[in-house]
């Protein structure tokens, strides 16, 4: 049975969901850009995956951002990376297989590069943030959400925008997203982003972080096994972007896999949970046998 608990990380309360025993866990890291993505992410987003996997091994789930009064400087990739690192330390995680969604995919890869003894494998899920974009065209998926932001209507709309089908979006999910949006961390991040942190801090740091990752991929390579999991109908990024990320990493890392899950958008773990569990558990058998 998964528990929800609050721990102190760098003086701020961070909510963690997971097994009572947090040793040798499968760590789920939620994505979305704090204060920007119009659905509010968190452990609730993983749906039945956490409970299903908890039957096999310990699981932990938390998100990228925590704490009230987030300053501009803390909404860059390095600060988010630092938060993840500190949360794992607070949980006394010595080694884990990390499953990271969206922006968290990039964070997890960077963490694996700096701490390959801590991160023994990364499952990157629907991460346009980690994938190369080149001179891509503007993505309009979230261009005109219904007001007010992070209301039930707005978050339901945003979840539908990134899904192949709306069938997985129920009241429980939307309510959990609304509750997450009311939290100090989300409200504080939204205020900071609205005040200019997106352009001043986040975007330059994202650009810089991707460059760092690709430099590693070009050189020594990502030091741990990686798999890239994509939905075939992700409105936020193409299958080709996922394949490009796979090929960049596979050039140096011998244990690299790519998986396309059919009829799924940005949340394949919700739309195709059985297939998602299959690829995560099969990879786990190799990189972090329980």
């Amino acid at each position: 049975m998964l528990m929800r608990r609050s721990i102190q990380v760098n003086g701020a309360a961070t909510v963690v969901s997971g097994s009572p025993d947090s040793s040798a866990p499968l760590v789920f890291l939620s994505g979305g850009i704090p204060g920007i993505t119009p659905y509010c992410s968190g452990p609730h987003l993983w749906g039945q995956s956490l409970d299903a996997l908890a039957g096999e091994r310990n699981v932990l789930a938390f998100d990228l951002c925590s704490g009230a009064g987030v300053p501009h400087a803390d909404l860059g990739i390095d600060a988010l990376l630092s938060h993840v690192r500190a949360t794992l330390a607070a949980l006394e995680v010595a080694r884990c297989h990390m499953v990271a969604h969206d922006l968290a995919g990039l964070i997890a890869l960077l963490l694996a590069v700096e701490s390959p003894t801590l991160i023994c494998g990364v499952s990157v899920v629907s991460s346009t943030a980690a994938a190369p974009t080149g001179d891509g065209v503007e993505n309009l998926s979230f261009a005109h959400p219904p007001p007010p932001p992070w209301s039930q209507a707005a978050q339901r709309w945003a979840l539908e925008q990134v899904s192949y089908s709306h069938q997985h979006i129920d009241s429980a999910l939307v309510d959990a997203c609304v509750a997450a949006a009311a939290g100090d961390a989300q409200r504080s991040a939204a205020a900071a982003m609205a005040a200019g942190a997106l352009a001043a801090t986040f975007m330059p740091s994202l650009h810089n972080a991707k460059g760092r990752l690709y430099e590693v991929c070009r050189g020594a390579g990502v030091p741990v096994p990686v798999q890239i999991i994509c939905g075939t109908h992700d409105p936020l990024g193409t299958l080709e972007q996922g394949l490009a990320l796979y090929q960049i990493i596979a050039a140096r890392q011998p244990v690299t896999q790519f998986h396309a899950l059919n009829r799924a958008g940005s949340l394949p773990f919700r739309e195709q949970p059985a297939a998602f569990l299959q690829v995560v558990t099969a990879f786990g058998e190799i990189v972090f046998p329980g």
Partner: peptide, 26 residues
């Protein structure tokens, strides 16, 4: 579903048997 294995040629089940067996078993 579609799965690609890096650093594998025409016989991925021989070049990476443990990964292949894990995926097939699941």
């Amino acid at each position: 579903q579609f799965h690609a294995f890096g650093q594998a040629g025409h016989f991925p089940f021989r070049e990476h048997p443990a990964r292949f067996n894990a995926l097939l078993g699941r």
